[in-house]
Design a protein around this nucleic acid. Structure first.
Length: 291
DNA sequence: CGTTACACCTGAGGGC
DNA sequence: TGCCCTCAGGTGTAAC
């Protein structure tokens, strides 16, 4: 589900329900891979704290608490962070309300995949974190504590320059697609937007990164930022004004040029979209538009 | 160091 | 209906 646009849309949606409120109760599922910080520690550290701000770093969300500690969240492949509870409707705009998936509706009951539930002293809306595959992560950072995952992130994808990408590309023999997915080069691009950016630039995902020119890098990064911004504006790929349990009917669905369109005609030239595997991930491209 | 294969986990969908 | 396979918007780690 989540690449940069989905994480940013999530941030904007839950920030009003999180920032400025005092955490009263922390409920979790049993200790697992999901909890980089054990549930017991999480409960002890979060209770009574107030969230001062919520920011996005690449695909991570970072909540800074009033004691200077921080809560690091990652949605992995299937993570969903949402506002839940009797008063949640008051905290959401009508369009945001209409976009809720069934499991995000206020009447939804926590299930075995609902790993984290924050309730607040005011008793109003809660914030829930659900993740079926548990590739998502929750980690509490003590004041001043550094984190290796954050430390290795490159510039945010919305801010990286073509020159920075070119500098990284010159000494890499991997396919350009692999480089776009490398979070230490630029943070936030995932499988969908990498394919889309490459299509818009007319570059095959298999092209060796070191062969890209500076001008090509400039255009590639500009196109990546274009699709990321456009997706944020339309509510991300899985969260849209159209309710879709399978997460495939988001607003972005209609704008996708190549991702998950294997065998379908290219919207520009009509050629059949191809799918190849690069670095154990699928990559989609138009054999005619991308040379 | 860069590159690659694989591990983590659950569920959906296709073919038989 | 069940079984078995493949696939999935991510990323840390071990091994060459």
């Amino acid at each position: 589900m989540p690449e940069l646009p989905e994480v940013e849309v999530t941030r904007r949606k839950i920030a009003p329900a999180l920032v400025g409120r005092v955490i009263a109760v922390v409920r979790t599922t049993a200790p697992s891979y999901f909890f980089l910080t054990p549930p017991a520690v999480l409960k002890r550290q979060l209770k009574g704290r107030t969230v001062a701000r919520l920011e996005r770093l690449g695909k991570y969300l970072l909540a800074t608490l009033d004691d200077g500690s921080r809560l690091l969240l990652h949605l992995g492949m299937t993570g969903q962070l949402f506002v839940q509870g009797s008063a949640s409707l008051r905290l959401l705009s009508s369009t945001a309300r209409a976009s809720l998936k069934p499991e995000q509706q206020p009447a939804f009951k926590p299930d075995k995949h609902t790993h984290l539930r924050l309730s607040f002293r005011d008793g109003a809306a809660e914030v829930w974190f659900r993740d079926t595959r548990k590739f998502g992560k929750v980690k509490w950072l003590a004041p001043g504590e550094r984190d290796a995952r954050l430390a290795k992130l490159g510039p945010d994808a919305l801010e990286v320059t073509g020159a920075e990408f070119h500098a990284a590309a010159r000494r890499r023999r991997v396919p350009v697609k692999t480089l776009l997915l490398d979070q230490s080069v630029l943070a936030g691009v995932g499988n969908i937007y990498a394919d889309e950016a490459l299509f818009l630039t007319g570059v095959r995902p298999t092209l060796k990164a070191s062969t890209l020119s500076g001008a090509q890098c400039d255009r590639l990064i500009a196109n990546a930022q274009r699709v990321l911004r456009r997706s944020i504006a339309t509510g991300g790929s899985s969260i849209s004004d159209y309710v879709a349990p399978d997460g495939k009917d988001g607003a972005y669905q209609d704008e996708r040029m190549v991702y998950d369109r294997e065998g379908q005609p290219c919207k520009v030239c009509g050629a059949k979209i191809k799918r190849v595997v690069i670095g154990q991930r699928s990559a989609h491209y138009c054999p005619r538009c991308q040379r």
